[in-house]
Structure formats: C-alpha cells, structure tokens
Design a protein around this nucleic acid. Structure first.
Lengths: 230, 230
DNA sequence: GAACCAAAGATCGTATATGATTTGTTATAC
DNA sequence: GTATAACAAATCATATACGATCTTTGGTTC
C-alpha cells in the first residue's frame, strides 16, 4: 500500500514471500512453526500456487525447511548447523572486510564508530533488541563497499539462517556483547591504519570465531528452551 | 528408470529439475537459451506447474535467470560475475581445504595424486573433457572430509555457476592446466607435511586466484564468442 | 495396558483452465 | 521508407479442482 514508486503490481508470489519473511523476521513465526500452504493462501486471499512458490524460495534462502508431502516449517538450526554457519560466516565476513577495507573512507569509519558507541550504550540501558539492530547496521557499513556482490550475498544468506535464533537471549549475553563492541573498534582501527589486508581479514574472522566460542560457553551454562511447536 | 533404490516416486518437479539441469550441464542448453515453460512441460509430459517450480529452483541456484512475465533463460555470467565467483571460490575452497586437511589420510592423498597424474596425462593426449572431469574429482577427494557441510554447499554452488562457461575452451588452456597440476601436488605436499592450517588455506586460495589471473590473460588474447541466442 | 491395524482427516502435488502481460506483426499515415 | 498504432500470437501468472500421500485417531487384539 505504502509503495512509493514500486513495481506496477507486485506478483502474488512476491506478496506471499515478503509477508512470510517479515513474519519470520519479526519473530511472529518462530523456528519450528508450521507453514501450511492452504492457511497462508486463505489469509492472503490468494491461491496456494504462489504461496508454494514463496515458501520454496524461502527454503532456498535457508529460512524455511520443506519436506515432501509433509510441509514447511520455519527453519530450526540445530547446534551443528549453528556452528557450521558461524564458521562459514567467520570466513566470509573476514574476506568481505578485507575486500571492503580499501574503500572505507573516514566518513564510514566515523559512522561505524558512532554506531558502535550506541551499541555500548545499549549495554548500559539493557536494550537487546536495539543492540541486535545496531550490530547489523555496523556490519552493513563495514561491507557496503565490498566490490564482490557474490560474497556479500552469501554473508546475507548466513545472517538469514542465524536470524532463526534471533531471540536476543544470546546475542545480548553481556560478555559477548561487550567483547563485540571492543573488537569492532579494533577492526576499525586496523582499517584506519591501513593494515595489510590479511591482517584485517584474520582479525575480522577471529572476531566471529570468538563469538562462536562464546556461544558454546553460553550453551554449556544455559539450557536453551526448545522452540515452540504449534 | 535406472534408479537403483531411489526415492519411491520422484516428484514431477524433481524430474523437471534434474532434466533441465543435466541438459545445462551437458551443454545442450547453452547460456542464453530460453527455457519456455510450456515447451518443457510438453516435452516431459507434465504440467507447467512443476516445471515452473524447477526453474525457480534453478534460478535460486544461479543456473538460470528469470524475469517476471518474460521467462527464463540459462544464466550467462558476464565477466564481473565470473571474476567475483572465482574470487569467492578462492576464499571458500581455501577455507575448505584448511578444514579438511586434518582428516585427509595417506589413502586420500595417494588417490588425489593418482588423479593428478592422470590429469597430467590428459595434457599430453589433449583430452580437455576428461581433464575437467578429473579436476572436479580431485577437488572432491580434497573436500570430501570437510567437517563444515555448509561451506561445502557454497563451494558446489560456485562450481555450478562457473559451469556456465564450462565450454572447456578455457579450463584446458595449456598454461593454466599445467600450472594447476603442479600446484595440486604442492597443496598435497603441504597437507602431507602437516603444515599449519593457515599456510594450507593460503596456498589453496592462491591457486584459485592464479587461475583467475590466467583467465584474464586468456581473455585478453582470445575474444570469446558471444553465447548463442536461439 | 501396549501394540497393531484401519479408516478418516489434513495437507500436499499436479493437471487443467483462464486472465494478464509481453512480444511480434501488420496496416496505415506521413 | 519510416514511424506509429492497432491487432494477433505467444507466454507467463494464478485460480480451481482433484488425486496422492502422510498423519492421526479410534478401535481391536493379545
């Protein structure tokens, strides 16, 4: 409705796609939630065909799992899935940071520092939701100039999958969050100083790897509640 | 038909998917070839719905491009697409090699060396097709043990896209092919010697990067024929 | 009471049909 | 001869309908 100069008419499949996707991102459709074609179709006043197409697209992007003759549900990463995705992200983000570094100017660095400072504030005022948001923004600034679109695409895909656990219980674990803020500053300083690309890459990668380690510690001390299964 | 103990009954969508895909891989559907839903459906004696689904899946995998109300065609990588994909592959394959290294035993190394030797033979007997095949096999042996499935998946996806140019004119350029054989040996030696993981990763990545450089040189000297547009 | 079987219900998979959009073609004006 | 407009053909997008498959429920047997 509030489309500015958007596409003339959005396809029904497109509509279903963005509708489901935003529901997932907003946490309304939690991991494990069953996506029933007919129900969604009825809700959106379209037939099942475009809904089916939308769901398969979401499946390809890793947000949804689909089983033949059984149906679709919002993806639930098991622990190994989480670990491998984080590991892959450490590789991809490291490389993306390295490739972006030469194109990041003083303005971008200043903007990133500002975001990072606000993240620190969030820690004081205990605002996990905003913190997660800012974290994403920080990475966007960092990668916006990456000359390899293909690589960026894979990074976003990884973020998608990880959003499955975006219950902000973990991403705001004080220890991890604080570490994140500090290391962000470190990476920015490296870029600013014109450090060798490999050094930048390894720093960025190590950051993500330490986040993964923090996740493991967190797992060990807290039992995660099992996801809702409506 | 010659399914051994395959799925009870393959879905039509699955059928269409693998049919189109193999046609692309065999070079029957060349880059730029238009994929008309109705025509394929008729050919396979199915309706357009599963064909449409197959095509959108291929689109998600990067083998096909699709435009609303216009149709699908086999993807054509432009030069920047090729470069970015190669760059991404250098990163992914490097990391995969590093992660696999600890799990590659003497048998696997021997097998890889044998494949590599046959690749050298192919150079003498000028057998580009077999060479490409062996190259893939070599990489399979190298990555089979990678503990990160997610990463492997991305590598395969990259290979898919690159297959678009699998006209074997380039992959068999003598200089590049010979270099490839030599460097494969180098990587195997590194793994065998128990070199640090970072060293292994960088070697593997550098190999792919040099392949990309070779591509550029090749481009400079040979004008690629523009893809067929039926 | 537990295990098994059968029938009902829910949901998916696909064929067919029709409306919507794009592309190609022909005729007319200048 | 070129450009434009109207029309025709091709193709895509989606609704509807029905058969296929899985899941669940209720009953029966041991």
């Amino acid at each position: 409705m509030s489309d500015l100069v958007g596409t003339a008419t959005r396809s029904k499949s497109e509509l279903a796609y963005s509708w489901i996707r935003s529901r997932i991102e907003e946490g309304i459709f939690v991991p494990g939630y069953r996506l029933v074609l007919g129900a969604i179709a009825k809700e959106l006043h379209v037939s099942v065909v475009p809904v089916r197409e939308a769901i398969r697209r979401l499946e390809a992007e890793g947000l949804v799992t689909f089983e033949r003759n059984v149906g679709a549900q919002v993806a639930m990463l098991n622990e190994t899935g989480y670990v491998t995705t984080m590991q892959t992200l450490s590789i991809l983000e490291g490389a993306a940071t390295m490739l972006s570094a030469p194109f990041i100017d003083a303005n971008a660095i200043a903007a990133a520092r500002a975001v990072n400072a606000e993240m620190a504030d969030c820690l004081d005022h205990f605002d996990p939701h905003r913190f997660t948001e800012l974290n994403r923004e920080f990475h966007s600034i960092l990668f916006e100039q990456c000359p390899n679109d293909n690589l960026l695409d894979l990074v976003h895909r990884g973020w998608n999958s990880l959003n499955m656990l975006r219950d902000s219980t973990f991403s705001f674990v004080p220890g991890r969050a604080h570490q994140s803020v500090v290391e962000h500053d470190g990476i920015l300083a490296l870029i600013e100083s014109g450090a060798p690309s490999l050094e930048i890459e390894l720093a960025a990668r190590a950051h993500r790897t330490r986040t993964l380690d923090a996740f493991h510690e967190y797992q060990a001390s807290h039992k995660r509640p099992s996801p809702v299964q409506p």
